[in-house]
């Protein structure tokens, strides 16, 4: 499950992140902003993730930290999916 989430996230970063490097080569903890993620692209990334996973980022996650790395995005998405299951 978790690995599937990771792969989906990486696929979305490839499409929406507009990084100058290949997202597939990034480690989970690599800093996406260092890798070239712009503020505008991070917004596109958020919208694409919401769309793909059917979740909505609450205000507390609408910040740079949420999109700082594959790991941080996965943590937020996992939490939102768990919340959705429980609801």
């Amino acid at each position: 499950m978790s690995e599937a989430i990771r792969n989906t996230i990486v696929a979305i970063i490839v499409e929406a992140g507009r990084l100058p490097v290949a997202a597939e080569t990034l480690t989970d903890d690599a800093d996406l902003y260092q890798a070239g993620l712009t503020s505008f692209a991070s917004v596109q990334l958020m919208l694409a993730i919401e769309d793909r996973f059917g979740v909505e980022f609450p205000d507390r996650y609408l910040n740079r930290r949420s999109f700082a790395s594959i790991a941080s995005i996965r943590a937020v998405v996992s939490e939102l999916l768990t919340e959705r299951e429980a609801a």
């Binding site: 503020s39 505008f40 991070s42 958020m46 919208l47 980022f57 609408l62 910040n63 740079r64 930290r65």
Partner: peptide, 14 residues
């Protein structure tokens, strides 16, 4: 909008 919420936070954080 909501995307703007993120831009606002990002602008402040930086």
């Amino acid at each position: 909008g909501r995307a703007g919420r993120m831009m606002k936070n990002s602008q402040r954080d930086q």
